[in-house]
C-alpha cells in the first residue's frame, strides 16, 4: 500500500472503482458543501475537490477536503501549479497529509485568462508532471525537492489527469507514460464522448503495458441537454461530442433530455467495464450531484464494495 486510502484499497482488491467530483463554493458557505457531498456519500470511493477550477476563486480545496473527511467521505485533493510555487506546493502537501488527506490529483491548472481574475500573475514554477515527481519523492524518499529530509514522511496515493483527445493525438499515450515514469498511481481522464477515439487510445496504452503500471479511470460527464452538448463540442478543446449523442438528446422531449443523458452515461460506463485496462470511472456530474446515485446504480455498481 502506498497510502492505504479507500480508493487505493478498492483498486488493490480488484474492484471496478468509482470516484465523484465536487466544486467548492465561491464563498464561505460550508452548508452548501454538506448538501452536495451528502448525495455522493456511499456512491463513490472518493470525491475530487477541485482547486480554483477554471481559474475561478473558490473555497480552498484542502479545507473542503477536510470538511469531507469530517463527514466520513474520502477526498481527492486536486492541486494546480498555476497558483503556487514549489515552496507553497510542498507546504500544502505536508499540511494535507497532516489533515488526513491521502489522495492527491496533480494538475497544471487552466490558464487564468479564462477565470475571474485574468489580471493575476501566474506561477507555473513546476508543471503537473514535475508535481507528480514531488509527491513521489516526498513519499518514497521522505525528501523535499531540495533533498531536505521530512520530519514525518507523508503518504500519498498519487493521481493525475489525461486528455486523450488533445493534439497531437499520437503523443498522448507517450505523455501518459511520462506521468507513469514520474510516479503516478492512478489516472482520471477528461470526460469521454468519442468512444471510438478513446478505445484507440486505450488500446495503445494497453499494448504498451501502461495500464499495468497505473489504474486508469475513464471520465464520465452526463449530458444535461442539447445545449450543454453543443457547448462542450464547441468550447472545450479536443472534446468532440459525436453527433450520434446529440441526435439522441434531440430525439426526446426537452424535459426528458437529462434522463437520456443519464442513460447515455450508464451505457458508457457499461462499455468501460468491458474495456481492457480500465480500472474504474470518474463521474463528473457538474452541479448535478443528486443524479449520481441513479448513474452508479444504473451501471450496476451499487452497493460499493467494503474494504478494510
Amino acid at each position: 500500500m502506498k497510502a492505504g486510502s479507500k480508493l487505493e484499497k478498492v483498486f488493490a482488491a480488484g474492484h471496478f472503482a468509482v470516484t465523484g467530483e465536487l466544486g467548492p463554493p465561491r464563498g464561505a458557505d460550508a452548508h452548501h458543501i454538506h448538501e452536495k457531498a451528502e448525495y455522493l456519500k456511499g456512491m463513490v470511493e472518493s470525491v475530487n475537490v477541485t482547486d480554483n477550477q477554471t481559474a475561478v476563486v473558490r473555497m480552498a480545496s484542502m479545507a473542503v477536503c477536510r470538511l469531507l473527511l469530517d463527514m466520513g467521505i474520502e477526498p481527492n485533493l486536486q492541486m494546480v501549479c498555476r497558483d503556487r510555487n514549489r515552496l507553497a506546493i510542498q507546504a500544502d502537501l505536508l499540511g494535507a497529509s497532516a489533515l488526513g488527506i491521502k489522495n492527491v490529483l496533480c494538475l497544471s491548472g487552466d490558464h487564468q485568462k479564462f477565470g475571474d481574475h485574468p489580471q493575476a500573475k501566474n506561477v507555473f514554477d513546476i508543471d503537473s508532471i514535475q508535481l507528480i515527481a514531488v509527491l513521489k519523492k516526498m513519499r518514497d524518499e521522505g525528501k523535499l525537492i531540495n533533498d531536505h529530509e521530512c520530519e514525518g514522511i507523508p503518504q500519498y496515493f498519487i493521481g493525475a489527469a489525461v486528455n486523450p483527445f488533445a493534439d497531437p493525438f499520437e503523443f498522448r499515450v507517450t505523455r501518459l507514460k511520462k506521468k507513469i515514469d514520474a510516479g503516478v498511481d492512478f489516472i482520471q481522464t477528461q470526460c469521454i464522448y468519442n468512444m471510438e477515439k478513446f478505445h484507440t487510445y486505450m488500446q495503445q496504452a494497453y499494448d504498451q503495458g501502461l495500464t499495468e503500471k497505473c489504474y486508469v479511470m475513464a471520465g464520465i460527464t452526463p449530458l444535461k441537454s442539447v445545449g450543454m452538448a453543443r457547448y462542450m463540442q464547441k468550447f472545450v478543446p479536443g472534446l468532440d461530442v459525436p453527433e450520434e449523442y446529440i441526435e439522441r438528446l434531440k430525439g426526446v422531449d426537452k424535459k426528458k433530455q437529462g434522463d437520456e443523458g443519464i442513460k447515455i452515461a450508464i451505457e458508457q460506463i457499461q462499455e468501460m467495464k468491458e474495456t481492457k485496462g480500465i480500472a474504474g470511472v470518474h463521474v463528473m456530474a457538474i452541479e448535478w450531484e443528486e443524479r449520481v446515485e441513479e448513474i452508479v446504480s444504473g451501471a450496476g455498481l451499487l452497493p460499493r464494495p467494503e474494504v478494510s
Binding site: F124, D127, S128, Q130, N163, A166, D167, R175, K178, P237
Partner: peptide, 11 residues
C-alpha cells in the same frame, strides 16, 4: 503555462 513537459490537454 511555461510547461517543461507539454503539450498539455488544451492543445
Amino acid at each position: 503555462k511555461s510547461l517543461m513537459n507539454g503539450p498539455c490537454g488544451g492543445s
